[in-house]
């Protein structure tokens, strides 16, 4: 991140409490960094697990995100909201992980190797979620969850990320654009196409 002004008047990001925590972490306060981890861990893993369909992989990726942030703290400059900066790192790492997993799948099909980061699919993820978290009385809800997960699987990666940032983080188009390094009109178009696709898949369930 480049140099930034240091007063709240000239730099609005300094009003972000998470930016303040990051600046404390930069000054050597590990407790402040721990507070950032606690604030974001569930939000980050929730988004990542809906991208890679594996909570274990999502947790590993989240730790990698925090590791990168911690490593870069000495050169940190508040030139964005902390959340958009963090989710940008997460988006890049998740994309890399998916690409690596894709290549690994090709190798596995040819040679049978099964090491490294694993990404699943919506069906497998749902079975694990069901068995670990869902009591029998919530079956209807979990069935609906399976249908929605399958519909999400029909989206491309960028549409999925934009939807998750908007749905889970309540991010504005401008923040999604900054996180995903896109323009605001591109985000609008991405979300429109994603919502149209989802409606096509899910329309019959709310008629």
């Amino acid at each position: 991140m480049s140099d930034a002004p240091t007063t709240t008047e000239s730099n609005p990001y300094l009003r972000d409490p998470d930016v303040q925590l990051m600046l404390r972490a930069k000054a050597g306060d590990d407790a402040a960094f721990s507070e950032l981890v606690a604030n974001y861990q569930s939000r980050l893993v929730s988004i990542l697990s809906n991208l890679v369909y594996s909570q274990e992989t999502a947790e590993d990726l989240a730790q990698d995100v925090f590791m990168r942030i911690y490593r870069s703290k000495n050169g940190y400059q508040p030139t964005a909201k902390f959340s958009t900066w963090m989710f940008r790192i997460a988006n890049n790492l998740a994309s890399n992980a998916r690409r690596s997993a894709g290549r690994r799948k090709e190798v596995q099909m040819a040679g049978g190797d099964s090491s490294g980061v694993q990404t699943g699919n919506a069906g497998e993820y749902l079975v694990k979620e069901k068995s670990a978290l869902m009591p029998a009385r919530q079956l209807d809800k979990s069935e609906m969850q399976g249908i929605v997960l399958s519909a999400m699987e029909g989206l491309n990666e960028r549409q999925k990320m934009a939807v998750l940032l908007h749905k889970f983080e309540d991010m504005s188009y401008a923040d999604i654009a900054e996180t995903m390094e896109l323009t605001v009109p591109a985000v609008k178009s991405l979300l429109t196409r994603a919502r149209e696709n989802l409606r096509t898949q899910l329309e019959s369930y709310f008629k």
């Binding site: 909570q55 929605v148 919502r195 899910l202």
Partner: peptide, 27 residues
């Protein structure tokens, strides 16, 4: 309505254990 259905997407709730594990790992 389509957007509302997305409320059923799974969300993860992690506790102090994950925070401590992450802090130990990064430091």
């Amino acid at each position: 309505r389509t957007w509302e259905l997305l409320d059923s997407l799974p969300r993860v709730q992690l506790g102090e254990e994950f925070t401590n594990k992450t802090m130990a790992s990064v430091t």
